[in-house]
Design a protein around this nucleic acid. Structure first.
Lengths: 196, 196
DNA sequence: GTCTATAACTTGATAGAC
DNA sequence: GTCTATCAAGTTATAGAC
């Protein structure tokens, strides 16, 4: 087992704290208590509070951008690409729920210039996702709906996963992933579900 | 045109402010500026900051609970019931995006006893929604997936709508509503969409 | 690296004049 | 109802001893 540095411990505990109370309501004293330091000692490891938020957000953003590059290179149908991206989002939400919560809900507390950088990166990711959707509509694989409507509905639909507190034993991650993808790709109503 | 009371103005402006900055980061001085008062004067109209959050949240909760009562009385298929509930959520999100944002994202800043009350009401709503889903699965109308997975995916899927800043002229509310319902009920992939 | 002490500031809320 | 003045408590962050 690799020993965690104090800095790592601070970042991990901060993510949990931001998730629980929100960035604004989480104080450096709260955080210090959790890592058994005085608040002032935190500043031997970080420059400022926002630096923590910034790192969490940009790490997660980087993760998604990289995966998008992989998916774009795949020689498969657009349906398969969307499924792959959805699976990635779902798996990430289940594996690292705290970071994903902060990334999803607390980015708006970023200050410039990080805020603009974050938003630009997100716009880029969304555009590339939208391009895949658009191509799927063109080939007749997808319903002919507004691509942005599809994009945001799909991306938002999985944002409850990271709120699940403890993994329900009756519902393992793999099953959950399969069910959500099936629901989004095939719809609630019986009719179009494919046997995989 | 009915004249707004100062109190109404305060509540409306507060909802916007909470939406923009989050409850924690929105100060009473911010709010006072927006309604052209000094911060101390706000307290002639309200007792405390949380009272504003509490009213916004409970008003919206009440709205959904009432609608659920109506839907439960309908003599239609479970598919139609779910569609009706989704339409209601979508329409509400488009008509009153600020209140819905606060209701959706800021409720966690409620203090006791309002927090427990809020959560209990929400649990009740979700259980009644889940019952409809379960019945739809039993009759074979819906895919046989975990009812909670369906419930949260559907409810979360529409939570991007209230972030849309200005109604896109190329995309009116009615079309948007139809497309989202079609996507969630029928799925992204071509195959099961019904002609309505 | 961690501490104590503290600077510099913002927060929600109240008292009392008008 | 609105104001000025103010309070107590909380905030991030820094300085300097150890």
């Amino acid at each position: 087992m690799i020993t965690k540095t104090k800095k790592q411990e601070i970042f991990e505990e901060a993510a949990k704290l931001f998730q629980e109370k929100g960035y604004g309501a989480a104080s450096m004293r709260d955080l210090a208590d959790r890592v058994q330091l005085k608040a002032s000692s935190l500043y031997s490891h970080i420059r400022k509070k926002e630096e923590i938020l910034q790192k969490i957000c940009s790490d997660q953003a980087h993760r998604f951008t990289e995966a998008m590059g992989e998916v774009e290179k795949m020689k498969v149908s657009e349906g398969k690409k969307v499924e792959t991206l959805l699976s990635l989002h779902i798996r990430t939400a289940l594996e690292d729920p705290t970071s994903i919560t902060v990334f999803s809900d607390e980015w708006k507390h970023l200050e410039e210039p990080y805020l603009s950088e974050f938003l630009e990166r997100r716009r880029d990711y969304e555009q590339r996702f939208r391009d895949i959707i658009q191509q799927g509509i063109r080939t007749g694989e997808f319903q002919s709906l507004d691509p942005s409507t599809i994009l945001y509905t799909l991306l938002t639909a999985i944002r409850w996963l990271h709120y699940r507190q403890r993994p329900d034993s009756s519902m393992d991650a793999e099953k959950l992933e399969k069910e959500v993808v099936s629901l989004l790709m095939g719809g609630l109503k019986i009719g179009s579900q494919l046997v995989s």
